[in-house]
Nucleic acid binder design. Structure first.
Lengths: 166, 166
DNA sequence: AAATAATTCTTTAAGCTTCAAGTAAATTGG
DNA sequence: CCAATTTACTTGAAGCTTAAAGAATTATTT
């Protein structure tokens, strides 16, 4: 804390350049990888990344999940999921029904076709990812996992704090 | 390398689960932070993230840059930049003119208004970012920078290789 | 010089995404 | 039980994004 001549706290512009550079690098990495995955998905399977991501969520559960669940897990808006699911139902990859116990709720799951196609895509997708991270040693991977977990926690905390003081 | 009974190399499904988990965590971090920054930019300044990002590129140069430059730096498509710039010119934040030496080229730069508003936003933005990364020690930041640089290089290499063998 | 190729940017169509407002159903609290 | 609130989802408008095709200009090759 710095005090001026009248012993009053003053705001000096602190240096947050390192964090800013870190954020930009993080963003660059993600954009780069995302673009690579997107273009390969399109070329190899003629599928968009959001469709793939949604199917990936559904592949993890056998009995389907609600639209809200998908929305939270994918970290996108409800309206977004509505449209995405609409198109996946249209193309026969996803099955949708109203919950028996709560008529507000829509339960969606992969169809047989959807699951088969996703599995096929996921296999290649996994090798692409390992290719993309090929220069990292197992130790690098562990360390990165650790630091990103810490980053995630920090970001979540900052988000909650900001939400409480609007 | 695993050889089968006929001494022929066979492809066994290798485990790339760690890299996949790493990618998902990287994506989660970026999505989380991006969402936080997006919502704060909207609430505080009623500006979108893409507009802010474009202005950030232009703020770095005094004499403007071409649309292609912006496109490469932001890692988005040309058409995307065209529309973004269109709206920023419309709102008076960006100035656009045709290059004197090459009539294909559009040179854009921040207007006085655009630069003033960006500087104002950037200052707060920087503190948000430092807040978001607040749990990371300086050592964490350095280490993360290093590992992400390595990741970026690895991803670029993978992308180039894939582009050559289509 | 003329033909060819490469570049810079724009346009279009389709899909993605958010936000805000709206509808319907379930839950809560009197 | 009923009013008020909350939850789950949908809709609509605006903007973002990409990919692909096209137009204009410049650079290269023959």
């Amino acid at each position: 804390m710095i005090l001026d001549s009248e012993t009053k706290a003053v705001e000096l512009p602190e240096d947050h350049g390192d964090e800013l550079r870190l954020w930009l690098r993080l963003l660059t990495c993600t954009t780069l990888i995302e673009g690579e995955v997107r273009s390969r998905l399109r070329e190899r399977f003629d599928v968009t990344l959001p469709r793939f991501d949604l199917m990936a969520q559904l592949d993890k559960v056998p009995d389907g999940m609600t639209l809200s669940d998908v929305s939270k897990r994918m970290m996108v808006s409800n309206g977004n999921v509505t449209g995405l699911v609409e198109r996946l139902v249209e193309s026969g990859h996803v099955d949708r029904r109203t919950s028996d116990t709560d008529r507000r709720v829509q339960v969606i799951r992969l169809t047989k076709l959807g699951r088969a196609e996703f599995r096929r895509m996921a296999e290649e997708h996994e090798t692409w990812i390992s290719e993309i991270f090929t220069d990292l040693t197992p130790k690098d991977v562990r360390e990165l996992m650790r630091l990103l977990a810490k980053t995630k926690g920090s970001a979540q905390k900052a988000g909650q704090k900001a939400a409480k003081v609007p």
